[in-house]
Simulated assay, not measured.
Amino acid sequence: MDNPLSLNRYTYGHNNPLKFVDPSGHMPVWSLNLISGTYNSGVVADWEASMMVFGGNTALGNGKHPSVYTPLHEIAQINVAKKLYEMTGQEAELEKSLDTGETEFFGLLKKKYEADIVLGNEVWEVKPLNGEDPKPQLELYKKIGGLTEGKQLKPITGITVFDQIKMEITFPNKGECEC
C-alpha cells in the first residue's frame, strides 16, 4: 500500500519476475504484516482488520478467490500475532521466508517455504479445523529454519470476521493453530 507500483498488476513483481514472484496471486506478505502491525497497535478493531485482509486479497490479489480459505487463514494469522504481541510486546513475522538451500527453475531461483507465524525462534502453523496435519510443515521449519514449535496458547474466541460471523482459534498442540 505504501508502494503504488505494487498495486499495478503488471508491475506487481517490480518488473523483475525472476526475483519477485507471487504464484498464488494473493496479498503481498509485506501488506499482511502491515495489517498485522496496525491491528496490534489498537488503531483498528478485529472486524476492520478482517476487512483489510479481505480487501487486500481482492484488490491486490487480482480479485480472484478460489476459496475463502486464504483470507480466513490470514485473519487467523493476524489474530495469533496480536495475541503474541499482547503477551510479549514483540511483533511476530507472518509468512516468514525460509531458504531450503535448494534451487528450482533450472537453478535460477532459490527454493523457499513460508512459515505462517514466527516470533523469535518459535513457529506456529495455521490450519483449518480438521484440515491437513501441520506436523510435517513444523518439522520442515525446524529443520531448515532452526525453529521450535511455538507455545501452546489458550483459545482465541469471538473474533469478528464479518458482521455476525465469528472465528475461534484453538491450539491443540505446540506450534499448531486451528481455525
Results as ranks from 00 to 15, higher is better:
2 D>L: 15
4 P>I: 11
4 P>S: 08
4 P>D: 09
7 L>K: 14
8 N>G: 10
10 Y>Q: 09
10 Y>G: 05
13 G>K: 10
14 H>E: 14
17 P>C: 05
20 F>L: 01
26 H>Q: 13
29 V>S: 06
32 L>Q: 02
33 N>I: 07
34 L>W: 15
35 I>Y: 12
35 I>P: 09
36 S>N: 08
38 T>I: 07
39 Y>W: 06
40 N>W: 07
44 V>D: 06
46 D>H: 10
46 D>I: 01
51 M>L: 14
51 M>K: 14
52 M>C: 04
61 G>E: 03
63 G>L: 02
70 T>E: 06
70 T>H: 08
71 P>S: 01
77 Q>Y: 05
79 N>M: 03
81 A>F: 08
82 K>D: 04
84 L>N: 03
88 T>N: 06
89 G>A: 05
91 E>I: 11
93 E>S: 14
94 L>W: 03
95 E>D: 06
95 E>W: 02
95 E>K: 04
95 E>F: 04
95 E>Q: 07
97 S>P: 08
98 L>F: 06
98 L>V: 15
99 D>Y: 15
101 G>C: 12
104 E>T: 08
105 F>P: 00
107 G>H: 00
110 K>A: 15
110 K>G: 15
113 Y>K: 09
113 Y>P: 02
114 E>R: 15
115 A>E: 01
115 A>R: 04
119 L>H: 03
121 N>I: 02
122 E>G: 01
122 E>V: 00
126 V>F: 05
127 K>Q: 00
128 P>G: 04
129 L>P: 06
131 G>M: 02
136 P>H: 05
138 L>T: 01
138 L>N: 06
139 E>L: 08
139 E>D: 15
141 Y>G: 00
142 K>N: 07
142 K>L: 08
144 I>L: 08
155 P>H: 10
160 T>P: 09
163 D>K: 14
167 M>K: 13
168 E>K: 15
171 F>Y: 06
174 K>E: 11
177 C>N: 02
177 C>L: 01
